[in-house]
Amino acid sequence: MATFDIMMPYYGDVGLMQDAVRSVLAQTDPDWRLTVVDDGREPGVPEWFAQLGDERVRYLRNPQNLGITRNFQKCVELLELERAVIMGCDDLLMPGYLATIRRVLKEHPGVGMVQPGVEVIDSQGAPVGGLVDGVKNRLYAPGVKGSRRMGGEALAASLLRGNWLYFPSICWDSAAVKAVNFRDGLSVIQDLALVIDLLQRGQEMVVDTEPAFRYRRHAVSESSLQAFSGTRFTEAERYFAQVADRMDAQGWPRAARAARVHSASRLHALTMLPGAVKRAQWDGVRTLTGHVLRPTGASGANSAAADGS
């Protein structure tokens, strides 16, 4: 039986999805099974999978559209093998991805999550380094040479200050993820929420620097009204308030302070403000401004300095 369940919740561009599937087929380690859960209705897709002729590939089309969160939850429910990858349908595994993960798991037995090295690419597949990834790497991601095992309050506080993970690249312990699954009611910040839930249950993560995954970052369209509406930050604000209370109850005060300050999320909102103003998205301007300037209280202000946020 295979070791790795590679799950691909799919909706959107057919060509990018096909490239993602091909990157799985190209793995040097053949010990995998791919399951694509199609939440759309693009023509020709079932036929394309039928002609692949690889018994390791399963294709499922939902009878009706489930939406992002429910489709991700379904992928978790379908997990059967020891380890899981929930990759984006427009991302790419490097040929040695599974070999890298297997090496890390051998070096760190029992670890619940593995974050390998990631190369960021644009919509055309070319390497790119933008503001978001620069901030992630320089301000929030821990300095790692080789591999580093992390967990507990230290990792929770680091991620709540600024989520520097590339979620689709992570390899998970399947049983741990199935025990938690993605939270209902979250559509943007559900990846961070899942990691924090696992950390609270005692799971640990290994961060490894060997490049193994290509994460596709699409440019935000200036013509998109939704992009600057600020609704994603309303969800984020609600989550940070709730998780801060949970961190206090867990006895993790540094993580609670980091959640209340959520400096990276506020910085992100600040970068979106000019676009909202340009598009006359005045409701979005108000939402974004509120997220940037929301008072955190005396304890929150002090924690920003204490935590280096």
Rank of each mutant, 00 (worst) to 15 (best):
L194V: 13
P127M: 04
Q226V: 05
I101E: 03
A264C: 03
G12T: 09
T28L: 04
P127T: 03
A154E: 10
L16W: 14
A156Y: 05
A227Y: 00
L273N: 01
R214W: 05
V111I: 15
W282T: 08
E237S: 05
S221Q: 05
G96C: 04
D191F: 07
R246A: 12
G129I: 02
P116W: 03
H108G: 05
R266T: 08
S229I: 07
E235Y: 11
G53W: 15
S263E: 13
P30K: 07
G110C: 10
H218N: 15
V57G: 03
L225Q: 13
E80Y: 00
F228E: 11
D133R: 15
I189R: 01
D54I: 02
A157M: 05
T35D: 00
A255L: 06
I86V: 15
R279Y: 00
W164P: 01
Y215M: 06
A179E: 04
R103I: 04
R232F: 12
I68S: 04
V206D: 09
V261L: 15
G129T: 05
T100R: 07
G134L: 14
V277I: 15
H108K: 04
R238C: 03
D39Q: 12
G151Y: 08
A306F: 01
V206I: 10
E107L: 07
V45E: 08
V144L: 09
S224P: 02
E47G: 01
S169I: 01
M247S: 09
R56M: 08
V85H: 14
G125D: 08
R70P: 02
E42Y: 09
L165M: 14
A84P: 06
S187K: 08
G146S: 12
R232K: 15
G15Q: 14
L139C: 10
Q200A: 11
R83E: 09
V14R: 15
S221R: 08
L25D: 02
V261E: 13
E222W: 09
R257V: 12
V285P: 13
S303R: 08
T3N: 03
D91R: 05
H268W: 14
D283W: 10
S187L: 05
E107K: 13
A244K: 09
